[in-house]
């Protein structure tokens, strides 16, 4: 980056900007090809991001329903139960804990198995079959921490049993990890393609302007002055190439949300789209930074290789 943070005269800044735009114009075909491919890359990235963001919200919702149940030692006093609760509260991975007393557990059992039939339940009034079933239901911020939490819970005094569903937690964790890897992989491939394309465009620009560059060097232009228009060219291609797909995605996503909401009401119970604002408040800056960054990187690498001034 050294050299690119130099203070530039305003007239030189505008001159450089103008030359950068002229470069794009001079190599119209290559510039258009670069912008189109960059747009395609960013479009795919945006599409992927929107899908992943929505998917992760669904996964999060499922995750939030995964709970670990902690049963107390037989005959545990309310003080012991409270102490166990205090120990649980110390853990940062715990998002919520719900205490279910033996009576509440029996009531819940009745609702499920006796369909709330009071006459059937009354027979057990004096002798709750689930007398030793008071427990905590513990919900986590991150289900991948379940095994660590279970080990900790088992070590707490006054705890008889810890029940958890390893399959649910592991499946969700693995799935989340898979999404992460796939996103990183796709982004990396897109990045390489885009850098390669910008580099090609800038190389053509340098070839076309070889004579001009030679004259500039003889007149006494600094490396910085010679290189700046090409950097501007790369950045502009990156910016345009990310602004176009963002606008397109915005229109598409907002229409899709409205369309699905109107036409497939039954789907809206299972599938809740993230609000447009929420998706794009992250996507817009990320895509723009990515586009401009790729443009900068592509042109910078090419200049280093082909423009020994």
């Amino acid at each position: 980056m050294n050299g690119w943070v130099k203070v530039m005269r305003i007239s030189t800044f505008f001159y450089t900007l103008k030359q950068g735009i002229k470069n794009i114009w001079r190599n119209k075909i290559f510039s258009l090809a670069s912008i189109a491919t960059m747009s395609a890359c960013i479009f795919l990235f945006g599409l992927f991001y929107a899908i992943v963001a929505n998917f992760q919200t669904i996964v999060k919702e499922v995750e939030s329903g995964v709970a670990v149940t902690v049963f107390f030692e037989r005959g545990a006093s309310p003080e012991v139960m409270e102490e166990v609760g205090a120990q649980i509260d110390k853990r940062t991975e715990v998002s919520k804990k719900v205490f279910v007393s033996a009576d509440e557990a029996w009531e819940e059992f009745g609702k499920v198995y006796f369909s709330g039939d009071q006459s059937l339940m009354e027979g057990f009034e004096a002798d709750n079959p689930l007398a030793e079933s008071a427990h905590y239901e513990i919900y986590m911020n991150d289900v991948s921490m379940q095994s660590t939490l279970v080990t900790y819970l088992q070590s707490i005094e006054g705890v008889r049993e810890v029940r958890s569903s390893d399959i649910a937690a592991n499946t969700l964790t693995d799935f989340n990890r898979l999404i992460g890897y796939v996103s990183a992989g796709i982004i990396l491939i897109l990045l390489c393609v885009a850098v390669f394309l910008i580099s090609n465009t800038v190389t053509t620009g340098i070839t076309v302007r070889r004579e001009e560059i030679a004259i500039m060097k003889l007149i006494g232009a600094t490396d910085y002055f010679v290189r700046s228009p090409f950097i501007v060219e790369g950045i502009l291609i990156g910016f345009i190439g990310s602004a176009i797909p963002l606008a397109l995605l915005y229109v598409m996503y907002s229409r899709l949300v409205v369309y699905v909401g109107d036409k497939f009401i039954w789907l809206s119970n299972m599938l809740r789209f993230l609000p447009v604002k929420e998706v794009f408040s992250t996507l817009v800056p990320v895509a723009l930074i990515l586009g401009v960054g790729i443009g900068f990187l592509g042109s910078r690498l090419t200049i280093r290789k082909h423009l020994k001034v």
């Binding site: 004259i215 060097k217 007149i219 006494g220 232009a221």
Partner: peptide, 17 residues
């Protein structure tokens, strides 16, 4: 670059843009 600013140069093929 700074050194070259002290020298003007003209070529046979003009080298105009």
């Amino acid at each position: 670059p700074k050194f070259r600013r002290n020298i003007g140069v003209v070529f046979q093929d003009f080298r105009l843009l």
